[in-house]
Write a protein that binds this DNA or RNA. Structure first.
Lengths: 157, 157
DNA sequence: TTACGTGCAAACGTTTTGCACAAAC
DNA sequence: GTTTGTGCAAAACGTTTGCACGTAA
């Protein structure tokens, strides 16, 4: 029997409180969604997913909370190669893989010597371009076609 | 004496024709602008720059042509970490450096062993996440503070 | 009870589109 | 002469804001 209209997952609730945010209904739903799947939702996709789950929230509340959660550091905002805003709940450093067919974006948590993924060739000898800059972050973003889309394309070809 | 209202630079004209595009006034101006400076213009910045040069084009024409030129492969569209569309006329592979203070974006044409820029640490052993994907592109994007902004900040501190 | 969160509707800035006229071929 | 590009104004899009009401502490 569920009498509480707000957070029913203590893990989620605690994560919010630990970051100084009230564990409200909307925030719990958003954070639960982002934590459950290792997927990089767009605001639109979140709106649809929450509605499909039977816990719809208004689009204004969604945006307001995405901003709050990002500021507080509970989630992370970034922009995909298609220019669309995306969010994730992951805190470990990782990079992204973007499917140019379906637009899906997943994590690259990995892998091997970097040179096997990013050829040294694109990074020639001297580094004068970086001189004088204070580098604070670096991000590697891969673009390609996901297994599902490859299969679908092969079938229709 | 300039009687031709369209392209007066043969290099630019030829580049357009080689890509199957008519060398119209607007296209020549856009491509000339992007070729002249090694800068990554936003649509807004291009609109202002063209107007300042005395060769204004309508905002609709600008967007229409940025789309055409990108499709044809004459210029390249990408999205900065701030989510703003940017364009460049460079065809060689290179990466980008984004100043989080002033928003300026410049090329990183370079440099040294990749590991000196992107620590191997962020790329652990196994590569299973990439399994099944057809990787078509990779982009390294650096975020930081440019020399000018560092100096300005140091002065006001 | 007081501060804060929510949802609606309206506003916003950016990008796209429909259409008449003009330029390129 | 036919096809394509241009510019205006209007529309569409994703995101933000003002405000009245509801919820958390």
């Amino acid at each position: 029997m569920k009498t509480d209209m707000s957070c029913n997952d203590d893990r989620i609730r605690e994560r919010l409180v630990a970051h100084g945010l009230r564990p409200t209904r909307a925030r719990c739903r958003i954070l639960a969604l982002l934590s459950a799947r290792r997927e990089h939702f767009t605001p639109e996709a979140m709106y649809d997913a929450l509605r499909a789950e039977g816990t719809p929230i208004s689009i204004a509340t969604l945006y307001q909370n995405l901003a709050k959660l990002s500021e507080a550091g509970v989630i992370r905002r970034f922009v995909g190669p298609d220019g669309v805003n995306r969010y994730d709940a992951v805190t470990e450093p990782h990079h992204h893989l973007f499917c140019e067919v379906c637009g899906r974006m997943v994590d690259v948590l990995a892998k091997g010597p970097l040179s096997s993924v990013v050829p040294e060739a694109v990074f020639p000898e001297d580094r004068s371009d970086l001189a004088g800059w204070k580098i604070k972050g670096r991000k590697v973003e891969f673009t390609g076609v996901c297994p599902a889309c490859q299969a679908r394309l092969a079938r229709s070809a």
